[in-house]
Structure formats: C-alpha cells, structure tokens
Design a protein around this nucleic acid. Structure first.
Lengths: 146, 146
DNA sequence: CCTTACGTTAACGTTAACGTCAATTTATTT
DNA sequence: AAATAAATTGACGTTAACGTTAACGTAAGG
C-alpha cells in the first residue's frame, strides 16, 4: 500500500521548473508552506512539496497572501477525522468557495467590460479602414470589377 | 446632450460607501487613479470617480497592483481615435483578456479541488453520523416502526 | 463663542514578499 | 587536487499599499 514511486527534487529543479527563485522557495518554507527533508544540509523536496508549490503559485496568481494559502493548507492537514474538525473544515471550505465564486464574478464582469471596449475600438478602427478604402477606391474598384 | 444629472461625493461618502479608508482613497489619487475636483481645499468626487473607485476595488480583489490598474485606465483614456492608438489598445486588451481567462481557469481548478475535499469530508462525516445513529437505534427504530 | 465633525497636508511607521549580496559549504567535473 | 557549479545561512535593502499621528483649517449647530 501507499508505495507511490515518488521522485525527489532539488531546490534548483523546482526553481527552474516553476520559474521562481530559490529565495522565494526558501521563503515559502520559512512561512511553513513547504517542509522539505534534508540530505545533510541540502533541502530535498518530495512529490508532495512539488504539488504544494504548484498550489502556492496558483494561489498567488489569484492574489492570495502566503498567510491565506497557509491557512488552507493547515485546514486541509488538520483533517484528523474528528467530527468537530470535519465540521469546521466544511465551514471554512464553504467560506473559501464563496470568495472564489465572487472572484469569478469579478472576472466575468471584467471580461464583459473588456469586450465592450474591444467592440468599440474595433468599430472605430473599421470606420478608419473604410475611409482609407474610399481614398484608394480607384484601384480597389478596378479589382472589384475584374 | 450629455447632461447626466450626476451626483457628487465627499471623500467620507465614498469611504463609507465602499468601506475603504479615506487614506486609501487619497492614495489612489496620488497614484493617479482618481482625479477629484476641488471645492476650495476639499476633494469633490464625480460619478466618474465613483465608478472608477468601484473598478479599482474590483481590480484589487483580483490581486492587481495599483500600477496595473492605472495602466488599464490610461489605456482606456488614451483612446483618441488614431489608428495606431486603437491598434495598440486592442493588443493590450487582448493581453488582459488572456490573463483574466487564465485566472478564471485557476479559479475553476481551485473550485474543483475544494469540491473534492468537501466530498471527502462529507463522506467522513456521514460515516460518523451513521455510527451515532446505530448507537441510538433503539429509540430511532421505535419511531420508524410507528 | 465653543464644540463637534469632517477634511487637509506632511511625514514617519509597518507589513508582506521577495531581491541582493556575502561568506561559506558541498558536490561534481576535469 | 583544483576549478566549477549548486546550495546554504544570514543580513540588509526594496517596493507596494496602506496605517497612524500631528497639526491645522472650515462649516454647522447649539
């Protein structure tokens, strides 16, 4: 059971894989988001760390702070099967879901705004093109007639 | 034409309306995101400022920096109808759209993750409840038989 | 006139999230 | 063994986005 052939990673590998500096990765450890093992003095990252780093960066792209990300990790980790903990977990998760949903709504509003602006700009641009076309209509019309 | 009965706002009104400090609002001005008029020394905000403030806060909820938000505003404002500007505007807008779309994807991945965790927690909780129910089955079964 | 509420500028403080050395150690290649 | 590459631990610097405090102005109400 539980014998996943899991690779290990050096800090440099993670760094280049995810395009973050090693400084950042160490900071994430200091912030208790990653807990790499040691091989002597060197950090040795497991598959779990790999996954977590991906989650961290995804969180960052959504504008979350390291503290918020840690809260989620802790939440998930503290799942010890006790009813109180489970209930609390569910509550917290629901809170997060709400935030995500409203964030999604913000994005959709933004996309709508963008689209309106794009449409207007396109319209303005088309008008300009039409003017130009008229300005060169002699050549153009010949082509059209042919 | 163009005679929209537009209200004006004091900094305090905006502050309480959007639940941000006046300090923040002044900072947004300093960052050239808002350009309120003056009535003597006091700032007087127009409907346009009102709308922009809403946009600013939406941007912030999406994790954007004030500089990024300003870039968008500038972009939008610089729409002078020249072809080069229009083209540039469209390019930039497309860039923004890509970011928004990928951000949306991040959110959906997060929501999926959440749902998986919730499902598991629910399952674990249900099992606990079932155990409890068995423990009190005498009373329960009477009710069911009746 | 005095108080109260609201607003102003200016300046310093703070926190988060890193960047940037510097000095040293460890591992690998030649 | 010597050189090179990759890591390590401090420690200090930096930027963004405000918070906080001080010292003062202004307008309204009692």
């Amino acid at each position: 059971m539980g014998s996943k052939e899991s690779r290990n990673y050096s800090i440099g590998e993670l760094s280049s894989e995810f395009a973050v500096t090693s400084r950042a990765i160490r900071l994430y450890e200091e912030s208790e988001l990653l807990k790499p093992g040691r091989e002597g003095t060197r950090r040795i990252y497991s598959e779990r760390d790999f996954v977590r780093l991906r989650l961290i960066l995804r969180g960052k792209r959504l504008g979350w702070s390291l503290a918020e990300i840690k809260e989620i990790f802790d939440l998930y980790d503290s799942n010890n099967g006790e009813e109180t903990q489970l209930t609390r977990l569910l509550e917290k998760l629901d809170g997060r879901r709400e935030v995500l949903e409203s964030q999604k709504q913000d994005i959709e509003s933004s996309l709508e705004d963008l689209e309106r602006i794009v449409t207007n700009a396109q319209l303005a641009l088309d008008k300009l093109d039409v003017s130009k076309e008229r300005a060169t209509s002699s050549r153009t019309s010949i082509n059209k007639k042919a």
